[in-house]
Structure formats: C-alpha cells, structure tokens
Design a protein around this nucleic acid. Structure first.
Lengths: 175, 175
DNA sequence: AAGGCCATGTAAGTAGTTACATGATTGA
DNA sequence: TCAATCATGTAACTACTTACATGGCCTT
C-alpha cells in the first residue's frame, strides 16, 4: 500500500493533478517508489472513492486537469500508516541471476553488461549529487534532515554498486 | 523472465523437484531472486510445456516428487539469456516512503521502525558471513569467483544499510 | 491545418502474494 | 491412530507493465 501513501504525501506537499504528480514522482518520491501515470490515475480514483482526497473546484471539461487535495481522513490515514511497519522487500536483481547462471554454464560476455550498469549507476549518482548540492547546501531543520537522510540512502546505494561493479570487473579481468 | 532463468540455472546445478527447488532458493538464488513454491510450480509447468526441461523417469503416483532436468533447448535458452541485458529494477522501499511522509506530517515514532530494520539487516549479514566462511574460505576458480562476487554484493548491501540506519538514528537523536 | 504537448484514461498481460486443498509417508 | 512433514497444486487477488485511445490547446 505504499503507492497510496506516497501519493498522499505528495498531495499534502502540494495539491496536484495526475500528470503533475507523475512528473513530481519522476524527480523525487519516484526514486524509491516509482509509479507510471497509469498507476497514479488508478490510485487517485481509489483515493477519491475512499474520500481520502477530493478534487479542488475547477472548471470541468475535457482537457482540463483534475487537481486533488488531501482530506482530513486522508491525513489521518497517512499518520496511521507512518506509525506502522513493513519488512524490507526482497531485492530482485537480474544482473546477479545472470552472473549466477554464467558461473554454471561458463561465463558469457558479462563485462559488457557490468560496464553498462556501471555507467547507469554513475549517471544516477550524478543526479542525486546535483540534487544534494542544490537542495541541501546549508540549513537543516527537522524535515530537511529527514529528506536529506533519504537522499543519502540513494547516494550511498549508488556508490555501493559502483564500487562493487568496479571490483568485480577487476576480479574477472585478473584471469 | 528472471525466475525462469534462475530455475534453469538451479536445475543445471542439480535436477530437482519443485519443493526441493523451493528449499534451495531459500538459501541461495532466492537471496537475490526469491520465489515461493507456488511460483516455482507454475514456472516448472511452463518450462516443461516449452520443452526446456523434462521430468526424469520416476515411478509416478500421488505423493511422489517430480524431478526435472534441463533439456538441450533449455541450456541454449539460458545461454542466450545470459548474454542479453536488463536495466536495474527500480528500488521500492516502504521505509523511505514512511520517512518522507514523516517529514511532511511531522515525524511519528520512526526510531522503532529503523531499529527493527537494523536488527533484520544485521541478522541477514550474519547469515551471509556464515556462508562466506563456510563456502569461500580457500581456493577460487572461475565459477567460485563469480559466486563469491554475488555473495559479496549481498554482504555489501547489508553493510550499507546497517551503516545508513545507524547514522540516521544518530542524526534523529541529535535533536 | 498539422504537429506536439497537456491531460485523462482503458485494456490486456505478467509477476508476485496470500490463502486454501489434497493426498502420501513417516514417526511417536 | 494422530500429527507432522513431504509434495503438488488451485484460486483469488494485488501490483506493476506495456500498449493503446481520445480529445483539447497552442504554436508554427
């Protein structure tokens, strides 16, 4: 149920339309809970059906956005969920499956795939570091500290993978 | 399609029944591609339908296991897949969503949840380190180096999270 | 008037989860 | 004989992905 609560969080920060939410997800919450516009529209419909959010008055008509805001019940629902808990989700990683398969049938050309992932991870790290430089340069009140911690999780993860891929490439080259 | 290829890999290592596979997944491939017995039975049926695996001759009858082995076509399929590529999957993390929500509505009692995750991560790390001590103490031929690299990914990930959670708890306590 | 973008959706399919069903074999 | 465990599955549901549909508005 995290998507639902991610959306409530985003709508509390700022009432938004579906497409606007999708755009905001792409550059913040989506880093650790990605969602396509299709998923978002569906969940918005459910949230509205459950009276946790409501459309702001807007001249209706085809082609005009539906802007949603969180109702009191929605804020309460989010508060309840925040104080709950979830186990970490199992991590599924096709690259590691591929390596395991290569260990069994004889390594195919894994170097190329590892190198490709290295580049992707580096690009993602750059993106995170740019956000950090832009948004967390100075002050740190309580909410900012939380948000910065989240970003540092993303940064640390990418750094870990970059390091691991580099080491692995070295080890495989040392044949 | 990684489950399918994870199963082919496991069956190449040793022909197995569905339940046996499920057990083996729990202590090796499942660390980075978990699967329940229901998923495994379904995928075995598909693999058999596609003639990539076949049942070893076994006295049939209710209650006796169906042991599968990989056919030539299955080995070929796996080899083809290994030389392909997949982007890293997006990482979905409810704990980070919770933190983000807490940043907006005022932090609930996140310490308890962080501490709980810390314990889970530490337990998982112990499990990995025990496997490393047992299986990778000495020699390192090519397949072993690959498998060790995979295990080190698991170890490094848990170490990263343990470090991140510890730091985050410190920062939140420093209020 | 044509192309691109804003905006909201439907449809179909795949993957994964949760709950339950059924029978065989084995050991207390 | 009863309970546990081995073993294979079905069913229903939720989440996510991919592909497509539809129309309005704005710019060239």
């Amino acid at each position: 149920m995290s998507l639902r609560h991610a959306i409530l969080t985003a709508l509390l920060e700022r009432p938004s339309s579906g497409l606007e939410l999708a755009g905001r997800f792409d550059r913040s919450i989506g880093y650790f809970w990605p969602a396509s516009h299709q998923q978002i529209y569906r969940e918005l419909a459910r949230l509205e059906g459950d009276d946790l959010i409501a459309q702001l008055p807007q001249r209706p008509g085809r082609g005009s956005p539906k802007v949603y805001a969180v109702e009191d019940a929605g804020r309460q629902e989010l508060a309840d969920w925040v104080s709950g808990s979830d186990d970490p989700r199992p991590h599924r990683d096709a690259l590691l499956v591929r390596m395991r398969a290569a260990a069994v049938i004889g390594s195919g050309p894994l170097d190329a795939e590892l190198t490709r992932h290295l580049a992707l991870r580096r690009r993602q790290l750059e993106e995170y570091l740019a956000i950090e430089a832009r948004d967390f340069a100075v002050v740190e009140d309580e909410p900012a500290r939380l948000q910065h911690a989240i970003l540092k999780a993303g940064i640390g993860l990418e750094e870990f993978w970059i390091d691991w891929i580099s080491r692995t490439l070295d080890e495989l080259a040392a044949d």
